[in-house]
Simulated assay, not measured.
Amino acid sequence: MPHLLPEFEYHADLEPHSIGPGPFGNRMEGTITGGEVRGERLKGRFVGAGADWLLVGSDGFGRLDVRATIQTVDGAHVYVQYPGLLELTPAILAIMGGGGTPTGFGDQYFVTTPRLETGDERYSWVNQTVFVGEGRVLPGPAVEYRVYRVARGG
């Protein structure tokens, strides 16, 4: 059975914009204005264009579509893209409304499946790795994730 190994953590600062209700739900966008990645094998910061698009459904969950670029401390660029699912608890809604208290990991269902890719050989291992993330939301707003690598069982 595969198992999860901690790989890196990161936070991203967001500047939210409401797009409004549409045919698929209420859409919001959060431009990534800064953030840091911390791990033994992957360290860096968010650069360039990046955003977190959130589609709020009538079921009380938000569907994520996130795209960003990480610049590592040694100058490589790693593209990250992920879908995810966020339970819109009262605490999450309070933060999205401009206030609130930080949530903890596990206070809500907030799970992502990041896909990383790069052409830099020093980080080519990310191209053949499956990741799973768990998140929490901070006032600001900002998000913070713990990202795990799916490792072979045995």
Rank of each mutant, 00 (worst) to 15 (best):
G75R: 15
G35Y: 05
P102I: 00
G20W: 10
D74S: 12
P139C: 15
E36T: 07
D13G: 09
E15H: 15
P90Y: 15
L88C: 14
W53A: 13
D120P: 10
T33A: 06
G153Y: 13
T118Y: 14
G119E: 11
G135D: 06
R146E: 01
H17A: 07
E15T: 12
R67M: 00
G154P: 12
F61I: 10
R67L: 13
V126W: 02
D52V: 07
Y148K: 02
G135Q: 06
P21C: 00
A91N: 09
R63I: 15
R67V: 09
R122I: 06
T101Q: 04
G57L: 10
I19P: 09
T89Q: 13
Q108E: 12
G34L: 09
Y148V: 08
V66K: 03
Y10T: 08
T101M: 03
A91K: 08
E134F: 00
R146F: 04
A142T: 11
P2L: 01
Q108G: 04
I92E: 07
P6I: 02
R122D: 05
G133R: 02
T118P: 01
T118D: 03
Y82I: 09
I70S: 00
I70K: 14
T89V: 07
D59R: 11
Y145N: 02
L4F: 01
V132G: 00
G104W: 04
A151I: 13
N26S: 12
G153W: 06
F24I: 10
L54P: 08
P83T: 13
L85E: 13
L86I: 15
E144K: 06
P139S: 12
T31A: 12
A142H: 00
G104P: 07
V56M: 11
L86G: 12
A76T: 06
V56E: 06
E121F: 09
T112F: 07
H77K: 11
Y148A: 07
V66D: 00
T113R: 08
F110M: 07
T113F: 05
Y148R: 10
T89A: 02
G97K: 11
I32L: 03
A49Q: 14
Q71G: 03
